[in-house]
Design a protein around this nucleic acid. Structure first.
Lengths: 204, 204
DNA sequence: CCTCCAAGTTAGCATTGCTCACATATGTAT
DNA sequence: ATACATATGTGAGCAATGCTAACTTGGAGG
C-alpha cells in the first residue's frame, strides 16, 4: 500500500497497485503533448508499463478514459476559480477580473485537457458526473454576479450576465489556444480586455 | 466537363471528373454527421465511389483534406456575416446584433465544420490560406466597430472592442454546440443576450 | 496514331481500439 | 496453513484506419 502511481524499475509487480490512477495521469500527459484526439491508448500503456489490454479492466472504452481525465480537470478548474474569488473583496471589479483570469490561465496552462473538458468530452456521450462538476463551477460564478448586482441568485438578470461573462472568457480562451488571434489582437493587454468586459457586463 | 460532383450510377467512368470537389463535399457531410476527428477517409471514398488510395492524388494527407473543407466553410461564414451587416444601417445596435447572430447561426447550422475551422484545423499545422480567410472576416468586424465608434480602424480601442465581441459570440457558439449550458442558461433568450452584450461593449 | 502523364487501381504495411481465453496474485473462509 | 473466488494482469488476434508502392487506364497534345 501507499504505492506510488509510477513504480520504480525494480519494483515491477504483476499487479500494478493503482493502474487506474497511473493511466489517468499518463493519459493527461499525453493529451497535453499531442492532443486529445490523437493520443493513443497503446502509448499510455507503454508509459504505465502494462499491456494494451489492461486498461479495459478499469475503463469500458476510450471515451471513459477521457471522461475520467476531464472530470479531474474540471475539479481543478473550479478550485482555481474559487481561489481567485476568495482572494478579492466582494463587489469589486478586481474580483470579477481575477475570476476570468483564472479561467483563461487554466486554459493556457492545460490547453489539452481544457479542450477536452468542453469540446471533445461532449462528443456524443453526456457524462452526468462531468456535467454536475461543471454546474457546480457555474453556480459559483452566479454567486459572484449575484453579490455584485445585489440580486437573487436565480434571477434572469443574474443568469444572463453571468452567462455573458462565461461566454466571453470561454471564447477568449479558445481563440488563444487555437492561435486564431491576429498579431494585433494577440498584442492587446489581457488585463485591459478583462477589465473592459467585466465593467461593461457588470455595471458598478 | 460540367460533370456533377456525384456521378449517376451508370455514368461510372474511370476518371471521376472532379474527384477533389466530390471528396470535399463528401467529407463535409461526414464531418457534420460524425465529427471531424472520427470521420474516415475510407467512408468518404465509398461515398464518392472510388478506392481508398484515390484521394492521395489530390491531397497530401488527412490534414490537407480537412483544411480544404475548413477553407470553403470560412468563406461561407464571412459571406453570411457580410449579408447580415449589409441588411442593417450603420451605427445601429441592430446591425451589431445581426452580425453576432449570423456567427452563432452558422455555428448551429454547421457545427461540425465550425468546430473544425477553429479547434481542429489548428491542431499543429498553420494554414496560410485559412488564416488569411479568417483575417478577412475579422477585418469586416473591425470595420463595423470602427463605424460605430467613429474611430479609425487600426486604433486599439476599436480592436479591443471588436475582439471582445468576437470572444463573446465565439464562446457562446461553442457552449451551445457542446451542450455545456445548463437548462436555465439554454432558456435565456438569445436575442436579449446579444443585445445586452452589444450595447455593453459598444456604447451608443 | 502514338506517347506521356494525370488519375485511377489493387495489395500491403504498421498502428489503432477492442475482445477473447488464459495466467496470476490477493483476500477471505475454512 | 489451504483452498477457492475474484480482481487484475497477459498475449494473440480481429477488423478498420491512414498511408505507400507498383501497376493500369484512358484522355489530351504533338
Amino acid at each position: 500500500m501507499s504505492e506510488p502511481t509510477t513504480l520504480k524499475k525494480n519494483e515491477k509487480k504483476y499487479h500494478h497497485g493503482d493502474l487506474r490512477g497511473a493511466l489517468l495521469e499518463a493519459i493527461r500527459q499525453l493529451i497535453e503533448r499531442e492532443g486529445a484526439d490523437s493520443f493513443s491508448i497503446a502509448e499510455a500503456c507503454r508509459i504505465a508499463g502494462v499491456s494494451t489490454a489492461a486498461p479495459y479492466k478499469h475503463f469500458r472504452d476510450r471515451g471513459e478514459m477521457l471522461r475520467g481525465v476531464a472530470l479531474l480537470a474540471m475539479d481543478r478548474l473550479r478550485a482555481d476559480m474559487q481561489d481567485a474569488v476568495n482572494a478579492h473583496a466582494p463587489r469589486t471589479p478586481e474580483r470579477v477580473v481575477a475570476l476570468g483570469q483564472a479561467y483563461v490561465d487554466f486554459a493556457r496552462r492545460e490547453p489539452g485537457v481544457f479542450r477536452l473538458m468542453f469540446g471533445l468530452s461532449g462528443d456524443h456521450a453526456e457524462d452526468a458526473e462531468l456535467t454536475e462538476a461543471g454546474e457546480k463551477a457555474n453556480l459559483m460564478v452566479e454567486g459572484v454576479v449575484s453579490d455584485h448586482l445585489d440580486l437573487p441568485v436565480g434571477s434572469d438578470e443574474v443568469r444572463l450576465r453571468a452567462y455573458a461573462l462565461w461566454c466571453f472568457v470561454h471564447g477568449h480562451s479558445f481563440l488563444v489556444l487555437d492561435g486564431k488571434r491576429s498579431d494585433a489582437e494577440a498584442a492587446l493587454p489581457e488585463h485591459a480586455l478583462l477589465d473592459l468586459v467585466g465593467r461593461a457586463i457588470l455595471p458598478v
